[in-house]
Amino acid sequence: MNYAKRVCRVLLIPLFWLLVWWVAAWMIAKPLLFPTPWAVLKRLTELMATKEFYLITANSIWNVVFGILIAVIGGGILSLITSRISLLREAILPIMTVIKATPVASFIILALIWMGSANVPTFITVLIVLPVVWTNLDEGFSHMDPQLIEVAKVYKMPAWRTFRILTLPTLKPYFVSACRTSMGLAWKAGIAAEIIAMPRNTIGTMIGDAKQYIMTEDMFAWTLTVILLSLVIEFLFAWIFRKLDSARKVRKEA
């Protein structure tokens, strides 16, 4: 596909859905129930003109991104341990299945009882993302090439080198896939936790307030903010991986 066609698609598809939204809002004709894109955009720019918007957004980014980081590091370390100890893997498997099957709201309410509302969004993000990371990496470990493992054994490669040249490249696609899946889930779970736990100055709390006072435009504007944040962070993540890959290629060519 040439550049012009790609640009057209990238611009036209969102424009098409904006048009659908606008037509739907026009047909419903009740701004309190379903505001127009224009009204939402106007409200979002108003919000963006205030200092609080950035404080609230930063708090939610912190809650979710910090949760993702803990889950990725924790899930990575856990999968490394369970790849070595099969009994532990078998013991953990049902817990992960239960966590994945349990409704997020149940965990949020439990977490609210256990801890202060400020920590609930991060805790919930960890709880939702960690099983995804662990399951993906566990799958990666099970796909390690036994023939290459034998090569590493026969040639007595040190453990760190084996990890670097065999384990990491094998796990990379599984890790990338885990992170991609986790990003969306993390935002959904983190913001849901904020809506129920209502910690101060967070996007979820703003959405909760908007619901309470039937400020539909606010609710749409904050939801749009979450979607944009999720996209930006996913884009950043993809960009970092691309940079790491190209840096490796440049090193090889040099």
């Binding site: 090569v151 040639y155 040249i165």
Partner: peptide, 23 residues
Amino acid sequence: IAYVFQEPRLFPWMSVEDNLRAV
């Protein structure tokens, strides 16, 4: 022990020289 397996068993994500350096 230096083992030449029936299949080449090279690390697919490493260049030939890096495969040699790895040992």
